[in-house]
Amino acid sequence: MADLSMPTCAGDTTIPVDEPSELTAAIRVGERLLAHYGTVDGGDIFAYIQAHGGLAEALRLLLRALAAERGEQP
């Protein structure tokens, strides 16, 4: 049977990936929520309720990330 094990490498060969800050991630999520829930067509009450929840969540995430960046407790 053939040896399929990986050769041993000296040192860490992984590529470091910078994680986005909490504020950057919150902004991206907020932008997506606004894009999805930002406009409501017609008089569909369920669409208004869904939009309100999405926009409230976007605002909550942004405020939490801002508080974390300032070192405050949410």
Rank of each mutant, 00 (worst) to 15 (best):
D44P: 03
Q73F: 08
V17Q: 03
L34Q: 02
T14E: 06
G43A: 10
P7N: 03
R28N: 01
P20V: 05
R60T: 09
R60M: 08
R28P: 00
A51Y: 05
T39C: 04
A2L: 08
A35G: 11
G38H: 09
L61N: 05
L59P: 01
D12A: 10
P16Q: 05
V40Y: 10
F46M: 08
E19F: 02
T39Y: 05
H52C: 15
D3Y: 01
A25Q: 15
I27C: 07
A51T: 10
M1D: 14
L23Y: 14
E22N: 10
G54F: 11
L59K: 02
L55I: 15
Y48D: 03
D44I: 09
A10V: 15
A58L: 01
L4P: 00
G30T: 02
A56S: 13
Q73T: 13
E72N: 03
A65M: 01
L33R: 05
V17H: 08
M1T: 15
A56D: 11
L63V: 03
R70P: 03
A47Q: 09
D44H: 10
L63D: 02
G11Y: 10
F46A: 12
A65I: 00
M6D: 11
E72C: 00
Y48F: 10
V29A: 01
D41I: 05
E69S: 02
I15L: 10
A26T: 02
D18F: 04
M6G: 12
D3I: 03
L61G: 07
L23I: 15
P74T: 13
L66W: 00
A51E: 07
I27Q: 06
R70N: 07
G53F: 10
G43I: 09
R70H: 07
A35P: 04
R70T: 04
G11E: 13
C9I: 15
G38P: 06
T14Y: 05
